[in-house]
Structures are given as C-alpha cells and as structure tokens.
C-alpha cells in the first residue's frame, strides 16, 4: 500500500509560512514545501535543522588553503628552489595571495559539488514537478496523511484560515509528475543554504 499525501496550495508567502508553522505545531508530518523562490523563515517554520553546507564550505576552504601553502612550499623549496628578489626560499608572505585564492576556489567549487550531489542534481536530469505553477506563482505544502483522521477534507478548515486555494490527496507514486517542460526544478526548501 502506498503512502497518501495531502497537498495544499497557497497564493501568498505569508500564508504558506503560517500554514506550515501551524501544521508543525499541530503535529502533522511535513514532507516538503514547494515555493517559487526561497522564502525567508521557512526553515524555521518547517523545523528543519540548520544546513551543514557551511561546514562543507569551511572544510573545503581549509583544504584549499593548506594545499596551496604546502604545494607552494614544495615547489619553491624542494622541487625547484630559486632565489627570487633575494628572499629566503621559504617566504610565507609571497604564498598568501595564492593561498587565499585557492581557499576561495576550493570552498566555492566544493560547496557546489556537494550541494548538487546531496540534492541529486546532475546534468540532463529530467525535472520533477509537483505542479508546474510552484516554479511560478503557487506555494505548495505537502503533509503526510499518516492516520485515518488526516484527509484533505478534514484539513479543509485547518488551511482555510490561511487562504488555501486548493487541497488534494495524492498517492506516493503520483506525487511527482515528470514534466517535459523546460525550466528549473522546484525550489526544495530543504536545500536552501544560509550564510
């Protein structure tokens, strides 16, 4: 038996923020929230834990910096020693610009690669759409219907306060509908990063 989901659609940023917050407070399981753009405060409303991307960036940046320092030390002291401008072979200040650039480069590229890997994004991936409008003007909240009491009908008054335009039930295998339409995929709030 496949899992049933309740999908509620909203028109405004504030509505879906309120609906998400209330759903969580009432103990519903939030599967995901789809919005056309990153909504500020949504992480908190959904109760997501803080993104670990910052650590990925930090570690890659440090790797880049250390690699650059030791790489340059190896090049200028061991592999091909050359006296430049009368400076000692191991002249740390001369390494700093390249160290800095490598830290930025590794931090940036490493973050992107890890972000794509974690979000399962890769070139030529076919976009999955819950509803094409969530990349345009609609906001969708997906809840797990984990007991008999939670159905689209029961949740009608619950979401009415927030001006839900439409509420529907979907089975797991119909939740994401592959669309051939070009364009970017939905914004998964789980993958937004903050700095």
């Amino acid at each position: 038996m496949s899992q049933t989901y309740v999908v509620a659609y909203f028109e405004h940023e504030d509505d879906i923020l309120g609906a998400t917050r209330k759903s969580r407070e009432s103990g519903h399981t939030i599967v995901d929230v789809f919005t056309p753009y990153a909504v500020h405060g949504m992480d908190e409303a959904m109760g997501l834990r803080f993104s670990r991307m910052t650590w990925v960036c930090f570690i890659f940046g440090m790797l880049g910096a250390l690699g650059a320092v030791f790489g340059q030390m190896y090049i200028t002291m061991v592999d091909w020693p050359a006296v430049i401008g009368g400076k000692p072979l191991n002249s740390l200040p001369a390494y700093i610009p390249i160290t800095f650039e490598c830290a930025v480069l590794f931090g940036g590229l490493g973050s992107i690669v890890v972000l794509f890997a974690r979000s399962k994004l890769f070139p030529f991936k076919k976009p999955d759409f819950l509803l094409p409008s969530v990349t345009n003007d609609k906001f969708a909240l997906v809840l797990k219907a984990d007991s008999a009491t939670i159905t689209a009908k029961d949740l009608q008054p619950f979401f009415a306060d927030f001006g839900a335009t439409h509420i529907e039930e979907r089975l797991e295998d119909t939740l994401t509908v592959a669309e051939g339409a070009p364009g970017s995929g939905p914004v998964h709030q789980t993958e937004t990063t903050h700095h």
Partner: peptide
C-alpha cells in the same frame, strides 16, 4: 593590511 605589507615587503 596584507596588500600594503606585501607590496612593500616584496619590492624591498
């Protein structure tokens, strides 16, 4: 700070 230092240190 480093830009000022490095250029002066390097050109000597």
């Amino acid at each position: 700070w480093f830009s000022q230092f490095m250029l002066i240190w390097y050109s000597n």
